[in-house]
Computed example of a mutant assay.
Amino acid sequence: MKALTLWQPWASLVIAGAKPYEFRSWRPPASLIGQRIVIHAAARKVDREEACWLWTLLMDRHHSEQERIAAAETCLHADIAIPILERGFMDGLEPLPLAAALGTAIVGEPRLGTRIAEEFGVPRANDSDRDSHANLGWPMLDIEPWPEPIPMRGKQGLWNWPDPADFIGDLS
């Protein structure tokens, strides 16, 4: 099984279903589409300013049309994302796990980011040139969170999740 390492809070947002697409500049390998992958949280600490900025953006989405569009451009489900983002910057809350696998998801057929943003309520621009520069959104489908994070060093990009048999040999 392949694994994909994401920085926090993005990994937790995917596993919670708040981030239904993982955006990349490249298309996933054809062999990966329709397959289950492990969602892994990187060891990099949460950027508290980024988490707070996103939280504020989502919280303010009802104040004006401009703020609604700005929040929609994140392609996040705000009501699910807000409590996760709070864990990224508020003291006293359980921190988001780092250097750990959080669960699995099935990678769907990738879509243009500009088309995905429309689903979230971002008005379509009239310049078709935007599509040629848009990132691809990999749908994260059939998410299965694990009851507990599994500590594991990750790697950039896609990497091979170890087979449980690899660990059994270490115990003897």
Rank of each mutant, 00 (worst) to 15 (best):
P29I: 03
M90S: 10
I39P: 07
G137K: 01
T74Q: 13
D47M: 01
C52A: 15
E119M: 15
R24S: 07
E49A: 07
K155V: 06
V107F: 07
A72H: 01
T56Y: 00
L93P: 08
L6T: 06
S132Y: 09
V122Q: 04
L4H: 03
E148C: 07
H40R: 02
P110N: 13
R61L: 02
S132R: 13
G154W: 09
W161L: 06
F120W: 11
A16E: 10
A16M: 03
R44A: 13
K19A: 06
D91H: 13
I15M: 09
I168Y: 08
K2D: 10
E148W: 03
P110T: 13
A51E: 09
N160S: 15
R68P: 05
A3Q: 01
T114F: 05
E118V: 15
L141D: 10
R44D: 11
P149C: 05
R115K: 13
L58K: 00
H63E: 15
Q66K: 12
E118L: 10
E50G: 03
A3I: 01
G137S: 07
L57H: 05
L58M: 03
L171N: 08
E65Y: 05
P162N: 09
N135T: 10
P123R: 03
I39K: 04
D91P: 00
D79V: 10
I84A: 10
I143N: 12
G154A: 14
W10K: 00
E50H: 11
P95A: 12
P83A: 01
E73M: 14
G103L: 04
D60A: 14
K45I: 01
G92Y: 10
S12P: 02
P28Y: 05
T114W: 09
A42P: 03
I39N: 07
G34S: 08
H62G: 06
R68F: 02
P151Y: 11
L76G: 01
D127F: 06
A11I: 04
L13V: 04
P28K: 02
W55L: 01
L57A: 10
A117S: 15
R27Q: 10
I69C: 04
I150Y: 08
Q66V: 14
P162E: 07
I143R: 15
R48S: 06
A41F: 03
A125C: 13
S25C: 00
Q35W: 00
R111K: 14
L141K: 03
C52D: 12
S25V: 04
S128H: 14
G34K: 01
R68Q: 03
R124H: 08
H40T: 08
W161Y: 08
W146K: 02
A3S: 09
A105E: 12
R27L: 12
F167H: 13
A42V: 03
T104L: 01
D170T: 12
I84T: 07
L4A: 04
A134S: 14
S132N: 13
I116A: 02
K19N: 08
E109M: 11
G17D: 01
L136G: 01
L141C: 04
W159M: 11
L57I: 06
T5S: 15
S172A: 12
I15Y: 00
P149I: 06
W159L: 13
A165D: 14
K155I: 02
P20V: 01
P9D: 04
D129Q: 14
R44G: 03
G121A: 06
R44T: 14
T74E: 14
G137E: 03
P147Q: 02
M1R: 11
N126F: 09
D170E: 15
A72C: 07
M90F: 09
R87I: 13
G103A: 09
M152Y: 05
